[in-house]
Computed example of a mutant assay.
Amino acid sequence: MDWIADTQWLWWVAAALVLGLIEIASLDLVFTMLAAAALAAAVAAGVGLSFPLQVIVFVVAALILLALLRPLLLRRLNLTGPAVPTNSDANVGQRAEVITQVTDRSGTVKLRGEQWSARSEDPAQPFPPGEILQVIRIDGATAVVAPR
């Protein structure tokens, strides 16, 4: 049973590694703070403190890190920036060249090098091939276009 007391620090390090892996999946900095607290408890175990004191070191370190360091890091990282449009949302506002006549029911355009089905936003206005339009919105897999 002496090997358990001799390797307590190693168990804390293993807990820190597991918490670090969980942080990779969550990216919220909570598990990073808990991993750092587990490392503090590993140091406490390395200097010979009893297990109840190691747990107290872990809890106190976790509370301090979560209450003080995490908010500072979140502000520094500025994780609340503007959202960047991706996928089909990134096509809104882009230039599109008419391939086949675009009406309010059918047509195709070349959008960012790809052929898209398209329809006119204005039912009374068809667009002939070669005309340059702007994508107003994406409805499913169809680009809704209007004059630039």
Rank of each mutant, 00 (worst) to 15 (best):
V92R: 06
R75C: 10
D104N: 03
R105M: 08
A83Q: 10
V57S: 12
A83V: 13
L77R: 05
I56R: 12
R75T: 14
P71V: 12
V55R: 12
L65W: 14
E97L: 10
L63R: 12
V84Q: 11
L111F: 01
T100G: 00
N78H: 10
Q94M: 04
S106W: 04
V84M: 10
F58Q: 14
K110G: 03
I99K: 00
T108L: 01
S106Y: 03
V98T: 01
N87Y: 05
I56D: 14
L53Y: 15
V98L: 02
G81M: 04
R95I: 11
V55P: 08
P82R: 05
L73S: 12
A90L: 08
A61S: 15
A90E: 07
Q54G: 15
V109Q: 00
V84E: 14
V98F: 02
V109N: 01
A90D: 08
L73Q: 07
V60M: 12
E97I: 03
T86W: 02
V102F: 03
P71H: 10
L65N: 14
V59F: 15
R95M: 11
P71S: 09
V92E: 04
P71I: 12
P71E: 09
S106F: 02
P85G: 05
L72Q: 11
N78R: 10
T103D: 03
I99A: 01
T80Y: 08
T108P: 00
V84F: 11
V57R: 13
G93N: 04
Q54I: 13
L69Q: 07
A61R: 14
T103S: 03
R70F: 07
L69D: 03
R112S: 10
R95N: 09
L63Y: 13
L111S: 01
D89W: 03
V84K: 06
V55G: 12
F58M: 13
L72C: 07
P85A: 10
L66N: 15
N87S: 14
L74Q: 09
N78W: 06
R105S: 09
V109I: 01
T86M: 12
R75H: 09
L79K: 05
P85Y: 03
R95G: 07
G93T: 04
R70I: 09
N87I: 01
V55T: 13
A61G: 15
V55I: 15
A67L: 09
G81A: 12
S88M: 09
D104A: 07
Q101K: 00
L69H: 12
N78M: 05
L79F: 09
V98P: 00
T80M: 07
N91V: 06
A83P: 05
V57D: 08
A61D: 11
G93C: 04
A67C: 10
I99L: 06
R105F: 06
D89K: 06
R75V: 13
V55S: 09
R75M: 06
V57Y: 08
A62P: 13
R95H: 11
